[in-house]
């Protein structure tokens, strides 16, 4: 399994999560966990996804998410989980 952390920040409105989840479904990426907080109008979301079925490489993944982000007015970013585990866990 290849665990990737996806973060999303932006102004909340209908359809954001749907758009992101659709993108994952279309690209064979399984969502393992979602956590979300909304402060006033803003949504802050973190998803852990399994990218082992996705073969196009990380730059394509980030490009795809960027396009989804532009559509829904959010900043979406994907990073391999290991960097956070290494930095913040002993």
């Amino acid at each position: 399994m290849s665990r990737t952390i996806v973060t999303l920040v932006g102004r909340d409105h209908v359809g954001i999560i749907a758009a992101v989840c659709n993108f994952f479904a279309e690209n064979d990426i399984n969502i393992l966990d979602i956590k979300q907080t909304t402060v006033q109008d803003y949504i802050n979301m973190i998803l852990i996804v399994d990218t082992s079925g996705y073969t196009q490489g990380f730059d394509k993944l980030n490009e795809g998410l960027e396009r989804v982000g532009e559509k829904v007015g959010c900043i979406i970013k994907a990073t391999h989980e290991d960097v956070f585990q290494m930095m913040h866990r002993i």
Binding site: T7, D33, K35, N44, I48, V83, F84, M87, H88
Partner: peptide, 12 residues
């Protein structure tokens, strides 16, 4: 699970 604050700390 990795916390949102940790992810943002790294991004920052």
């Amino acid at each position: 699970m990795v916390e949102l604050s940790e992810v943002f700390e790294t991004y920052e």
